[in-house]
């Protein structure tokens, strides 16, 4: 059965590109354009892994991550932060809140992201 990935990202062009490449790799991809929807979908879908942007409408990535890690059902889902922010404070805060890893979008190709996902999911 295909592993489920949820991508919470407000930039639809990034969502489309990532969805295409991840689907072709064999993942079942769902997406959300804002933090609130992302959180709701995560609780309903219980994906195997979440890709999360930090600057999001309605609820920012930190709030989403905090709530995911406080929820019994979602706290074990690995979360990869995909952001273009790069300050030590943002990275530190994300990791302290429970993110598995932090990737700067411009510095990673989609293929690199796929490799990271495979590594985290033990594939």
């Amino acid at each position: 059965m295909a592993k489920k990935i949820l991508f919470i990202e407000d930039e639809s062009a990034l969502q489309k590109a990532a969805t295409q490449v991840l689907s072709e790799t064999g993942y079942e991809v769902s997406s959300a354009l804002d933090g609130e929807t992302g959180l709701r979908v995560a609780k309903e879908l219980l994906p195997d892994l979440i890709l999360l942007d930090l600057i999001l409408p309605k609820k920012n990535g930190f709030e989403v991550l905090k709530e995911l890690k406080e929820n019994e059902q979602t706290k074990k889902i690995p979360v990869i932060i995909l952001s273009n922010l790069e300050s030590g404070g943002d990275v530190q805060k994300s990791l302290e809140l429970g993110a598995t890893t932090y990737l700067v979008k411009t510095n990673y190709s989609l293929q690199d992201v796929v490799e990271k996902i495979k590594g985290i999911l033990g594939e």
């Binding site: 489309k16 295409q20 411009t106």
Partner: peptide, 24 residues
């Protein structure tokens, strides 16, 4: 710089997806 990164990452990922698509 952070504002510039956003379109650059869109360009990078879209180009990669486009290439995969054409190759397919």
């Amino acid at each position: 710089s952070h504002q510039l990164r956003s379109p650059l990452s869109i360009f990078k990922w879209t180009l990669e997806a486009l290439r995969t698509d054409i190759q397919k």
